[in-house]
């Protein structure tokens, strides 16, 4: 059995190339769902899901509708200008409330929601970024028995976000992008 039901990836400034590499490295048979939360512009037409979708390997990235049921072997991208929450029956709930950490979607909001629904079955991955979103959410995931990886700040284009996450969560695993790729490529 897979060690996780969900791998949640949070990223901000400087994270998109790494997210692309991570998705390409996923084994095609992965049994978990991947949920990506990126800080993005609001009210601008965006094709980020297509940018991240690689046709050759068939990693199709999908922006879920409200109340869509989370499926294994699927990659989801938080829609722009909404917070992405998870209901107890494992479907998505969108939320258009106030910005959190100047962001909507906020990584904290999704991580906290995942922690309460999935407990130990979540792996959180936090990448490069310029604010401290994700640190509190990662704390919630760890304290509910989940696992966490933080991109080594020395390898991040913007170190503030991984650094803030590590200050709050010193037990999180610190890995370079290559290390994260290796970790994910052997996790099915």
């Amino acid at each position: 059995m897979a060690p996780f039901d969900i791998i949640a990836i949070g990223g901000s400034a400087g994270s998109i190339p790494i997210v692309s590499e991570l998705l390409e490295a996923l084994p095609s048979t992965f049994q978990y769902a991947v949920i990506i939360v990126l800080h993005r512009l609001r009210n601008v037409y965006s094709e980020m899901n297509r940018v991240l979708t690689t046709s050759d390997k068939g990693t199709y990235v999908h922006e879920p509708d409200d109340k869509e049921v989370i499926q294994p072997n699927s990659i989801y991208l938080a829609p722009q200008n909404y917070h992405l929450l998870i209901e107890a029956d494992r479907c998505f709930s969108l939320d258009y409330s106030e910005l959190v950490n100047y962001s909507r979607p906020s990584i904290d909001v999704t991580f906290e929601s995942l922690a309460s629904v999935y407990g130990s079955r979540v792996l959180a991955v936090l990448l490069s970024g310029a604010n401290d979103d994700g640190a509190l959410g990662m704390e919630a995931i760890l304290s509910n028995g989940g696992q966490a990886i933080v991109q080594d700040p020395a390898t991040a284009a913007y170190a503030a976000m991984p650094r803030a996450a590590l200050e709050r969560n010193p037990t999180a695993l610190v890995l370079s992008p290559d290390g994260i790729i290796k970790f994910l490529s052997i996790t099915t």
Binding site: H83, L85, S93, D95, S97
Partner: peptide, 9 residues
Amino acid sequence: YARASFQRR
């Protein structure tokens, strides 16, 4: 109401 967001509120 959707529980996840209601609880957050």
